[in-house]
Structures are given as C-alpha cells and as structure tokens.
Design a binder for these strands. Structure first.
Lengths: 346, 346
DNA sequence: CGCACTCCCTTAACCGGTTCAGAGAAGAGT
DNA sequence: ACTCTTCTCTGAACCGGTTAAGGGAGTGCG
C-alpha cells in the first residue's frame, strides 16, 4: 500500500480530455444552458473517467455559492455533551444539508462576543453561505450584526426575540400553558417549574407563560427557579423545592429539559418521595432518555430532528430567494403522559 | 438599521492604504521574514483600520494551509443525540482547534461508503487540511483510502484496527479487565457485559478482554450480548439477562456506555430487583448522567473532553510535521465506584 | 571606484474555478 | 445571395490571496 502523491486533477484536465474549453466544463457542471447534449455528455464522461469533481474552494472564490452553513454554539462544553437536544438538532440540520451536498461548520464559542466575531469572520471570509443562529437573548446583538453584514441567516427563536430576522420557532408559551393545565386537570394546585438559563429568551417566554397560566388557574402555589440546564442544577433546584414542609411543597414539577427531569427523579427517590404518588414530574423535549427511567417520564414532546431539518430548509430559502423570508413556527410540543405524572395523593 | 451591502475589503485595499504591494501585506500577515519593522507596523495598522482579515478561501486556493478539520460520524441520528460521548469529544476537539483559529467540518453519514466518498471529496477539494477518523472496524477501508490519498488524519482507535495510521486510543482491554476484577473482588462470580455494536473494533477488543478476564478468574458465569448502544437495546439486553432464574442470573452487569446503564437501572427497578443488593451495575464513560440516577452509577470513568483535545493536538502534529506520527494511548479509564456496585447478596 | 552582498520590497505568475462578451457556424427569412 | 437569429463554444478577465524571482538602495571591502 504505497502512498500515491495525490494526483490533483483539475478542470483543465477534464476540458482537455473532452476536447473543450474550461468554460464549457464549468457550464456543464453547473447545468447552465448553452451546450449541446452531445458536448455535455462528453464532458461528463471525461470527468467521470478522471474522477473529477469541482473544487469547492475555487468555486467559492470565484464568487459562486458557498456550500457551507455555519453554526456557532455558546454553552459550556460539559453541558453540551449532556443535552440530547443539540445533537439531535444538528442531525436534523445535517439531513437536509446532505441533500444539497452542503456541510455544517460547527464552532463552540465561549461568549456572545466571540460568536459575533466568528460570524463576521465567516461571512467576510466567505467561509459560509449562511448561518443558523440559536439561543437568542432579549436585545440580541446578533440581529444588528447580521443585518449590517447582509449575512443570510435563520434564527431559532420567537420573533419577539429575533427582531425581524427570518426565524423558526416552537410556541413555548402555549406548550407551557398546556403543561400547567394538564397538571391542574390532574388535581395539582401547587406546581413548580425548574427553568433553564435566565438569560435565554425562550426561558423568559416560558417563565412569563407559566406565571400567566398559574394566575389564570388560580393555583394555590406556583414556584419558578432558574438554572443552567445542567443535571446538577436540576437536582439542586428539586432538592430545595421538595425539602419544604407539605403545605409549601409542590406536588408537581415541570422541567425545562430532560436531563434536569432525570435528576429530579433521582432526588425524589433519594428523599424517599414516590413518583408520581407524592410528586409528579414533567420533562421537556422528550428524548429517548424519558423512556429509560423508572418510572418513565411524562414529557412535553416534540420532534427536534424535524425541527433542525425545517430550520435548514428555511435557511436554503433565505439564501436562494434573498429576502423571501418565511418566518414560521413548527408544531407545538404535545403532552406525552407516561409514568411520572398522576393525580396528587397529598 | 439599514442593511449595508457588505463592503468587502481585500488585501489590495490594505496594501494601498499602507502604501505597499499585495505581496508585502501577505508577508506581514504570515509572519515571514523580509520586511522591516516599520513597514510591518504600517501594514498591521492599515489592516486594523480597515477591519481586514485574510480571506481563508483565497488563502486555501493559493495553496497554503487549510484551517478546517473534518469529522464524519456514522451512526443513526437518533442514537447520536443520546450519546454524551460525541458532543463531549467534539467539544474537546474544538477547544484545541479554536486555539489555532481552526474550524470543525462536521458531517453525519449513513454508511462507510458515504464516509469514504466524503473524505475523498473533502481532501481533493481542499475543504479540509486533515480529518479525524472514528469508529474503526476490523479491516477498515478508510486505512487504504487515506494512505492512497495522502490525507493527514488521526485515527481514534487501537493500532490493531487503524493499520499504521497515526492514532490515539484508550486501552479498553485493560479497563475491561479492571472492571471484571473489581466486580470479582466484590464477590461476584456471575458477571455479564452489555456491549456495543459488534461491528465496531473497540467492541471486539472489549469482548475479547472480557472473555479472557472471566477465564482467568474462573468465573462461574460470564455472558456477553451485543447491542447498538441505544438505551432501548440496553433495556432489552438487561431484561433478558435478569429474567433468568437465580443460579443462571448474573449478579453484576457491565455496560458499554452510560445510556445503556441508565436503561439497565430502570429495568432492574421495573423487575423489582434492588441495585446494588440484587444486581450490581457498572457504566462506561462516566458522563454527568451517572451522578443523576438513584442510586448513582459506578462507572469506568475517563476524560472524554481531554481525549478529544489530545486527538486534535495529535492531528496538528501530523499535519505540520508530516509523518512524525505520534501514535499513543491516553490514560486508561479508571474505576469510579458509586452506589450501583456492592457485594452480591444472593 | 567598482564589486559583491544584504536587506526590503515589488512584480507577475499561479491556485481552480466562474462568467461574460463575442466569434463561428448553421438555419431562417426575404 | 445576403442579412438576421439562434445556438455553441472559446478566450480572457477575475475572485483574493501566496510565492519565487528579481530589482534597487545601502554597506563593506579590496
């Protein structure tokens, strides 16, 4: 197995073999008019025989489309590994990108500032043809940057956060309301919510919706606590909620992701409380994890993979149609009852 | 906030403003000799004032280094989301890439064939400067491809699988042996292992090591079952292991990842078996998940993030030093006892 | 004074494509 | 027979950098 020194075959070789000019090969490979069928065939045959494919770098430099989509993620590494959401989202994005033989440029950043720098460098350097923006905050500085740059993006987040950018979102407010109503319908009057990072826009939306729903239902008790999405934080929050004496203790807890719900389940067990008899637990996202616990976790369930795919499709729309932005929601998470929710026994 | 039409500033503009030629700017930005300090300063000042940074695409085309590293992952999407290993590995890789302002090109592929095509296209199209190869199988076809192409890579896997490619690996055989010895030392004589995908090389290594360790210790019973790494598969495997009548039922089970161990824990609960009294469970990888269950999961623990970082560092070594390949292992996973392992009561 | 040697910097070719003005050839219309 | 189109295809400029070869100024030395 000797290492061949990589015989780079270029458009020039293909042109020579097909007996045409470089330009003709380019036209053929971009499916542009102006070539006879016969010539087209000869060119493709020559390319196939030589095993040639257009060099994306050169193609990009020459000013045509860029076949790369950027995604900068700003969360601590430790947390990411545990968040099934991201990988599933990425796989959904990928599934659509692959159809367009497009790749995903992934970058983990440590701060909003770094993300701003990365996005700008990517775009000005023609490293990406567009970007997916996630984890919006109120007054997000990316909105201004992106508009100034003219960078095609699709924002993942509610329009109230993404300020005019084309966006795709899940209706978290409605979902939270449904979650609270469901628990109330089971008979719960003291409900708590273990939320995600307070700085994140969608957390704020859920928080507001929870308050409103609790008010509308005139619940006897409604607590909310912000965390960083990590299992540890979820465990701490649960512990502090459940140590209260009975009249002040919630009988149901809604979590902002699966990991924290799993952690909550374990805290309940550790404290000798039965789930769902003593306390009901409701997870969010509904990854496979929810079916691996005992009892299984009821969850607000949605198709994260499909969500990623939809975001990617929308981005292609933005990139090609230039401005025919199609902001739209994806289906609202639906309640999937399992073993961790039941009427309160207390 | 009107959208500026993106004022692309090029090396030519910088050169003009600094009163030098394009070449001079290039020399300065690549820290090459042949320029006076004064000129260098002027150039950098001009670049800063214009907000210019070299265009990576052009730089790549011109034949210099490529600041992108490729990673193609071949596992079903659903599973990926749940495997904390990947995201943590990626974040480790990223942490090193970022230091070199290098990006990660990620691609989920559906088959080995597709991966071969992707890697070849990436390399020939100068899309990547090198690649990270994971999930090796016996007789892996990537070895031949990569050697033929001359693509700089670092393989994640034991040298027996990665055929001469520079590689970084964890000593799974030793770790499995330690796991079995630990359980045996606790008094377990009937031990099972719920392994990962049989096609994967490292699974085979662990399987062989388990057999050997079991033989050496003359265990009364040693079972192994292959799965696809998913929680569901882990649950099924556990269920079938634990339904056996007592003399044929294992008193300890080792899992190939965390997810399956979590699933196993839940199956034990569902079957009315106490952990660790009736059956001990040992997880693998030791993500945060292991501390979120009740009881907490004992695990073979290693630093996946650090592993990723080391792989990235090695890849840079391969790319720059051209052939000074440094195949080496990373620290062997160590046993971290928690609440799911104890002497058998049966 | 002339020559060799440095040191800085410029020039121009090149990387591998895309794009567009325009050249030839073939067919249509008159 | 001649002009006008239409259809194919070519040639050359260009994208934004890198790099090797070379030119001019300044210095050391015989």
């Amino acid at each position: 197995m000797t290492a061949t020194p990589t015989p780079r075959v270029t458009i020039r070789d293909v042109a020579a073999r097909a007996g045409v000019s470089k330009g003709a090969v380019s036209l053929a490979f971009n499916h542009k008019p102006g070539l006879s069928e016969a010539t087209r065939d000869r060119i493709f045959r020559a390319a196939r025989e030589l095993g040639w494919a257009p060099n994306l770098t050169a193609r990009t430099l020459a000013g045509s489309r860029v076949d790369v989509v950027g995604l900068a993620v700003c969360r601590p590494a430790r947390m990411l590994g545990l968040e099934p959401w991201y990988m599933e989202f990425v796989s959904g994005v990928e599934s659509v990108l692959a159809e367009h033989s497009c790749s995903l440029l992934l970058r983990l950043v440590r701060s909003m500032d770094e993300e701003l720098r990365v996005q700008e460098a990517w775009w000005r350097g023609r490293q990406v043809g567009g970007s997916i923006l996630v984890d919006f905050q109120a007054g997000d500085p990316r909105v201004g940057l992106v508009e100034g740059l003219g960078l095609p993006v699709v924002a993942v987040g509610h329009p109230s956060l993404t300020g005019g950018l084309p966006s795709v979102w899940t209706d978290d407010a409605t979902a939270v309301t449904e979650a609270v109503r469901y628990l109330a319908a089971l008979g719960h009057r003291r409900i708590a919510r273990v939320g995600g990072a307070a700085a994140l826009g969608h957390t704020a939306i859920r928080t507001a919706a929870f308050d409103e729903a609790a008010g509308a239902l005139e619940l006897a008790g409604a607590w909310q606590v912000a965390t960083d999405f990590s299992g540890d934080a979820g465990a701490r929050a649960t512990r502090s909620l459940l140590t209260a004496a009975v009249p002040d203790r919630p009988t149901a807890i809604v979590y902002d992701n699966d990991i924290m719900a799993v952690a909550g389940l374990s805290v309940a067990a550790e404290m000798g409380l039965r789930v769902p008899e003593d306390v009901s637990l409701l997870a969010w996202d509904d990854s496979q994890l929810c079916r691996l616990t005992h009892p299984t976790l009821s969850a607000m369930s949605h198709d994260v993979h499909g969500f990623g795919a939809e975001v990617a499709r929308t981005l292609f729309g933005v990139i090609t149609a230039e401005g025919t932005a199609g902001s739209h929601p994806v289906p609202t998470p639906v309640l999937t009852p399992r073993g961790s929710t039941a009427p309160p026994k207390v």
